[in-house]
């Protein structure tokens, strides 16, 4: 499952003492470089006011934004996003893999061609549509366009996975008289659990990172997401030394949910990567 921890073929290379030491040192130096931004921002957050700054930004509202609430908001949007992608994606993946209909390959490639659609290129229609659907200031208003942009990738991943499932499972079920809906729910979904979990975790991660849709659609400070808060809380801090330090403390805190997610979800994110993405 968690492949990083498992016995790894490359571990033989550790037997070479000198190479292993060189790599260890190299990795440590590089790790310090990768941590450099984090170290910098933590230092800045403590420059004036110390750890009290963290307590302060956690206990006050910043331009109406309450930091712990932004985590909740990000999470709700992320769950909705993941739900839409898993539901629509798995059904479509099944259809493109197991069902035969005219123009299937063409339709499949038409779906995939939207893989590279950039969010910024659809902000104008999304803004209009959100108004038309009455979805301003709602979690749904953010999760729907996010899901639309993730779906091409989901279909690619799930169809690839479905193609790799041994056909005999389905044939046996078919002989037993199972219809497609039963095969979908009782064979396809359980078998593709690792991929679904992997995809769901990626969806959650992407939602946590998304800035553009929340900033376009959510104007209420109560519904502000963590990624969006980076911008909206800035003007809550006057440019005085202490408040600047507090702003950096807020930035550090905004990274916390993502870090927690990594610690909890990393094994699921890596799981199934090979089975879908890197298929022959």
């Amino acid at each position: 499952m968690a492949r990083v921890q498992e016995a790894n073929p490359l571990e033989i290379l550790r037997r070479r003492r000198i190479d292993a030491t060189v790599m260890q040192v190299l990795l440590l130096v590089l790790a310090l470089w990768w941590l450099f931004p984090l170290i910098t921002v933590i230092r800045q957050s403590l420059q004036v006011g110390g750890f009290g700054n963290y307590a302060h930004v956690l206990s006050t509202t910043l331009n109406g934004v309450f930091l712990p609430r932004t985590f909740l908001n990000s999470f709700v949007v992320a769950l909705l996003h993941a739900f839409f992608v898993l539901a629509a994606g798995s059904m479509a993946g099944y259809a493109f893999s197991r069902l035969r209909f005219r123009g299937r390959e063409l339709a499949y490639y038409l779906v995939l061609v939207f893989l590279a659609v950039p969010a910024t290129a659809v902000i104008v229609p999304v803004y209009f549509l959100t108004g038309k659907l009455g979805l301003f200031n709602s979690y749904l208003g953010v999760a729907l366009p996010e899901a639309a942009l993730t779906l091409p990738f989901a279909v690619l991943l799930l169809r690839n996975y479905a193609d790799g499932i041994d056909g005999s499972f389905f044939e046996a079920a078919s002989i037993d008289g199972a219809g497609h809906f039963r095969m979908f729910t009782s064979i396809f979904l359980p078998l593709s659990r690792p991929t679904l979990i992997n995809l769901g975790t990626l969806c959650i991660m992407w939602s946590f990172q998304d800035f553009i849709f929340p900033s376009l659609i959510i104007k209420s400070p109560q519904l502000t997401t963590a990624a969006q808060a980076v911008q909206t809380i800035r003007s809550a801090f006057s440019p005085t030394p202490q408040q600047t330090a507090q702003f950096f403390a807020a930035l550090v805190l905004l990274a916390v949910p993502a870090v927690v997610l990594i610690v909890i979800g990393l094994r699921w994110m890596t799981m199934g990567l090979t089975s879908g993405g890197a298929k022959e």
Binding site: L27, F211, A226, V230, A255, V259, I262, L266
Partner: peptide, 15 residues
């Protein structure tokens, strides 16, 4: 180490 190298990619890009 793995976590450290992944950190910048997994926190919000705006941040």
């Amino acid at each position: 180490l793995y976590g450290i190298f992944l950190l910048p990619s997994l926190i919000p890009l705006s941040l």
